[in-house]
Design a protein around this nucleic acid. Structure first.
Lengths: 240, 240
DNA sequence: GCTCCAATCTGGTATATACCAGATTATGGA
DNA sequence: TCCATAATCTGGTATATACCAGATTGGAGC
């Protein structure tokens, strides 16, 4: 039955997609186990996993480490060029945000960062590592490297809210210009562990380097997002 | 040997990475075949494929359909907010660009596009589908939807160069503002075929919707990039 | 030197079968 | 009722083994 045209695992992908629609499974609902699916669709677990991985790549479903497969919620819209806090834009879109500070410390500027900021290696630097949730799904982890010369005592404050807001309100610091980099990568090491996903899971990297009006280094933000979690949306140009 | 701590395919990943460094394989060079690698590293083809897929996700190597594995060239830097032609910025970075027009036609605006542009369904619209290469590796395919009311006769021109440049020089059209969207997705269907990659290969989607000074629809650009091919780089703010 | 075709090489797909490790659930005792 | 622990369920890893289909190569015949 059904020749040549189309490999089995892609046919399975289609059947799973249809099945999910029929069952009206929605955001964050759980799929049956792989063993059950492979029986129900008359194939082996290996092959059903290929089909599931395909749907994962397409962003329809995601896996929660050794717990099972779930329906992916819709993407969060995000504009990295604007200074608006995570909690703010998540709430604005009708979701519920949460932030966990995994660690924060005063450390010394490593060579790679020195190269970016122009400041000498060993300069004191704040380092904050946080995990952010939307509707209790961890979507990203984020490293903030902040220039303590600009905001002494920052680490004694709570970092579970917007750092940007704190910099503005407590230290009167507003970024004047930034360099932004964005590219797809594989989540691995610390970032994969912190998000509780497998090594090599697809992700999106967002890098924001901010300077103040004097052209001095203010902050570097390195965000590691799940690939299916966000949609970057930017408006460029005059009006609107 | 080597217990619990680390799965074999990740160890293999590390060994392959080291091996590639030692051999000093560089951009677009070919790796030995999977069968040869699995023998050389004392494992099965299935497992070596897991390790190779890992390196593929990380962007170190890429596959060319049924031909083999190759070292990924460095990422192309790209600023979607600027109006600068593909050929221009590719050349600028020391690479050699090429564009193929796969088809171009005058058609009618479909519902999904009508929703975005605000123009009625069925309005005439130019549709150009192109493939772009850097150093003879196809990195992206691109759909251009252009408003013919703004540039009658555009399709008789060659579309193998910059459409943006043509709009500017021949029709005096410059986008006044745009909406840009960026997100990771899986390449599939026409886009996967045209880039000669497997269904479900990781990709990056870039969407640029341009309006002229009257606020009227000028052009929609939908780009499908290989995930390992580019690094988006944008400068935001005042000086520099 | 060229063209065409067959042999061969490559990765892609598919099945069967274990066992492992973390997460969850059930159970039984305090 | 609560808590610790054991049983069970889940996806993750690993090996062996086919065969398929597109790409490349090599050689025969012109």
């Amino acid at each position: 039955m059904s020749r040549a045209e189309y490999p089995v695992y892609l046919q399975l992908r289609d059947r799973l997609w249809t099945w999910i629609e029929q069952e009206q499974l929605c955001s964050q609902q759980k799929l049956p186990s792989e063993r059950e699916l492979s029986e129900r669709f008359g194939t082996t677990r290996v092959t059903i996993r290929q089909a599931l991985s395909q749907l994962e790549a397409e962003g329809l479903i995601f896996r929660s480490n050794r717990r099972g497969w779930y329906i992916t919620p819709e993407r969060l819209r995000y504009d990295p060029s604007r200074d608006i806090g995570f909690n703010h834009y998540v709430t604005e879109q009708g979701f519920s945000p949460r932030t966990e500070t995994l660690f924060k410390e005063l450390t010394e500027m490593p060579p790679w960062l020195s190269e970016i900021t122009g400041l000498p290696v060993g300069t004191p630097i704040y380092h904050v590592f946080r995990r952010r949730y939307v509707n209790e799904r961890g979507l990203l982890v984020e490293h903030n490297f902040i220039n303590p010369a600009k905001c002494p005592g920052l680490l004694s404050e709570s970092t579970d809210l917007s750092i940007w807001k704190m910099l503005k309100e407590q230290y009167d610091l507003v970024p004047d210009h930034r360099d932004i980099e964005i590219y797809p990568l594989a989540l691995k090491g610390l970032e994969a562990e912190s998000l509780n996903v497998n090594q090599g899971t697809a992700g999106l990297y967002i890098h924001r380097l901010s300077f103040d009006q004097e052209g001095e280094f203010l902050e570097l933000d390195r965000e590691y997002w799940l690939h299916d979690a966000l949609k970057i949306s930017v408006h460029v140009g005059s009006r609107h």
